[in-house]
Design a protein around this nucleic acid. Structure first.
Lengths: 329, 329
DNA sequence: TTGAAAGCGCTAACAT
DNA sequence: ATGTTAGCGCTTTCAA
């Protein structure tokens, strides 16, 4: 820019004015400046500009895995909102590792992102306190932060699991298994709670053998499902704790002669084309992301007040697998 | 940082030294500085730091849609590579709109990203020439840039389509339809070319009614498929031009009494659980992304030389739908 | 071992 | 209408 000013024989500020389309530049001066800009191939450095302005027009997004079919639309929704506000997205995957999450978040704060959308992985987010006090607006999505009071947008995990379980009960099932994620993952714990609540509502006992929480790789889920199906008290239905579990269960159940009912958690593409079509408790990831981003930008626009907690409802999509009657024991 | 220096009664540079772990600070000075840092809650501003250093340690990613199941793993792979090099990802979706892509890319360049990974949407990327000359390393993925010579990583789209078509021919089909994306999208054109080549190889004519290129919303694909199936020269097999078309076709074909063979393009989750399981020509999106990012960082590390073009092979995954024999005409 | 000064590229505040 | 100065928060150079 300095070079442009010299080349056009004008002051630095005049170039700045032209570049930013400000008023108060004589037409022919403007022309001369533009010519110099073209001649030198000048492009404004937004980094420097934003440094001066004290913002970065960018917001950070940290979540487990960018490529997960559940999170990808969430990010996309945040992106749309950011775009509407002229901000760019900087993002990173935490790979469900609290330490990596922390590094990522702090790296983003060090770059002075204006705001942060985080799907928390760990259970202690006090490290964010100083950053938030320093002015980084932060909204958590999908799970609550640990030991930190902040804006958060959640799905009604307990309610959804409860509804899914009740649905199975309404279709005659009394022995229902729950296969979910590690109990230290909040959503998993909530869903387990909903499952138990529905069983209790119906006065049904829960055999400990029916509940399995842990990593959701296919191999483990498969093994657990087999165990539950062939154990001393086989179930007639499953409630899956997340999308990965649902898919694994579909695979296991497809290979068995006797039909077993299944309600999945999270919707997925082609669920309606499987046989039987898969009944699921659906969340709306795009709405989660959009809502969170909306709150974030409202904060950035100056909205004060205590941290808000928003819970979005889930929706039971009955497609077939959840309406199968109990197999004859 | 200035405040820290004042508080610790040392020079600015000494604080800088401590913050960056540089040598040459007396132990007790260092201690005093650290104490002041904690007392004031100081965090280094990486934006300012990088401004001074003339890089940003961030790379831009621009593609059609972050949430697309094909692109999400690609981005993820770029992210891993970036992480290994200490860089963050800034990204945006072009929504297949050349103008939006251009804006996004230029916004990223204005922020002086060190490098750029782009899945091009338009067909004229000359606007990038000045940026690349100015030092923004750029690698294109999945499609070639228009009117610009640059590094690019592609799948063998023509080869894949040819193999898929030949597979259908080998299973006895002679009337095969191709339903693909708009012909101005390069990958779509390439795949059409592969389809035609395979048909020609086998000495088979291609009825113009069998080929349909255009937007891939479900409604249009559905209508076109119905038209082709009920027209004067119905086909016995389909080659789908991309993942969205594949899914739409699965839906259409599932609703018909007479089984019709199908080979999809791009693999998708659960393809093996449908009935019949769906045969596809699979690309490896993560490998595309990883390869592109690898090339990018090699350039950033100083690798010179002419632009490189890498083509990755596709893989035919025979699962059932592509091995169905032709229905009796 | 330490620090003062200059400067990265820009904009805000105040001249002229 | 235009220019000058200061400064965003840091690093680099060079001197002490």
């Amino acid at each position: 820019m300095k070079d442009v000013a010299a080349h056009a024989r004008v002051g630095l500020k005049t170039v700045s004015r032209v570049v930013n389309g400000e008023e108060g530049v004589a037409p022919d001066t403007r022309l001369r400046v533009c010519a110099s800009i073209d001649a030198l191939g000048f492009r404004r450095n937004d980094g420097a500009r934003l440094l001066r302005q004290g913002r970065t027009a960018s917001i950070g997004v940290v979540l487990e895995d960018l490529a997960d079919p559940f999170y990808a639309p969430l990010v996309r929704a945040v992106e749309e909102e950011a775009r509407a506000h002229g901000a760019l997205l900087i993002n990173g995957s935490s790979a469900e590792d609290p330490e990596r999450e922390r590094e990522l978040v702090l790296a983003l704060c060090a770059r002075r992102v204006d705001g942060l959308v985080v799907v928390p992985a760990g259970d202690d987010h006090r490290y964010l306190r100083p950053e938030m006090d320093a002015g980084v607006a932060t909204v958590f999505v999908d799970r609550s932060p640990g030991l930190l009071d902040a804006d958060v947008v959640l799905s009604d995990n307990a309610g959804g699991a409860r509804e899914g379980t009740a649905h199975l009960i309404a279709h005659g099932h009394r022995r229902i298994a729950f296969l979910g994620d590690r109990p230290d993952i909040q959503t998993a714990a909530e869903r387990l709670r909903g499952y138990r609540a529905a069983m209790a509502d119906a006065g049904l006992p829960v055999d400990p053998a029916w509940v399995s929480l842990g990593p959701t790789e296919p191999a483990r889920v498969r093994a657990e499902a087999e165990r539950i199906l062939t154990g001393h008290a086989p179930v007639t239905a499953f409630l899956a704790g997340n999308n990965r579990v649902t898919v694994s269960l579909v695979r296991v159940l497809a290979g068995r002669p006797r039909p077993t009912a299944l309600v999945g958690f999270d919707d997925f593409e082609l669920a309606d084309l499987l046989s039987p079509p898969v009944t699921v408790v659906a969340q709306d990831p795009a709405l989660l992301g959009g809502t969170a981003a909306g709150m974030l930008f409202r904060r950035l626009a100056g909205a004060a007040g205590a941290p808000r907690r928003v819970t979005l409802p889930t929706r039971l999509l009955a497609r077939g697998s959840g309406e199968l009657p109990p197999a004859q024991g």
